[in-house]
Amino acid sequence: MDIQDALRPRPPDQRPAHSNNKTKLKIEHLRKHFGAVLVLDDVNLDVKSGEIMCVIGQSGHGKSVILKHIMGLMIPDGGRIALDGATYSTPTSKPVDFEEPRRKLGMLFQGAALFDSKNVGENIAFPLREHTDLSENEIRDVVAEGLEMVGLQGIEEKMPSELSGGMRSRVGLARAISMKPEVMLYDEPTSALDPIMGDKINDLILDLRRKLGMTSIVVTHDMSSAYKIADHIAMIYQGRIIYAGTPGEIRASRDPYVQQFIRGQRKLHYAVEDEKVYEAPVDINKLRPAYRPGQHRG
């Protein structure tokens, strides 16, 4: 890819409107605690079909936990998750309830989660071999194509232990998208990458949406990539979504927590000049003290 091309900023209005306003994934009142720590308090998120939703928030505030709930890797303590209108995850869900939605979902793990005992090619081919009727030759082509998409052509024979963190993450991405899921969850796809490769991955996420109409939920710390790809940005703070809006809206938001995060400031700046303007959507201080999240974090 041409470096100049990668660095050129893209005006936000060129973003195609793929969202057809049909809700694809709906999270309602999701709640989860581990031991005494309440990680998710009340998460509500509505993802439209074909949209790219970025979830931002500080480290340890439960972004990965949300994605794991969507994948059915964790059972919520409260609330529900629905895909295409069908609720599949509730506190009483059984492992079988997740089998059906998982066919439509794909996930890139924060640590890539490659199978160490298999080489890169086998990692990508494994699910294809088990779930599709493709011949060995076709599988080889799909693997090569997937690696090409993430900029890693020709490393099929390498073992995961021989790869760098960013390479592993991209192989994980190739593995997840090779199954062409309807909804793709990315857990920090660009955080281990250099800016140029990060931009390539951003383009890939946009491309998948354009070509396949894939719905994406992208957890990220990287505001520039969030502004670039997101249709909506949701901010999680202490177990709640405190703000959700378009990139433009979130930039203009007066919420001190949002501003603090997107500008990378260490101190909160309240909008004191006009007291009415600042209304935090959630008053953290009104949470019951016993359930106050974040206390146990260092």
């Binding site: 794991k68 890797l73 793990f109 640590g111 989660a113 160490d116 699910p127 779930h131």
Partner: peptide, 19 residues
């Protein structure tokens, strides 16, 4: 082997890929 696969989320990844 299984324990370290669990620790590095490989078991979760298998579940996600319906394996």
């Amino acid at each position: 082997e299984i324990g370290s696969m669990k620790a590095t989320e490989q078991l979760d990844a298998m579940a996600c890929l319906s394996l």
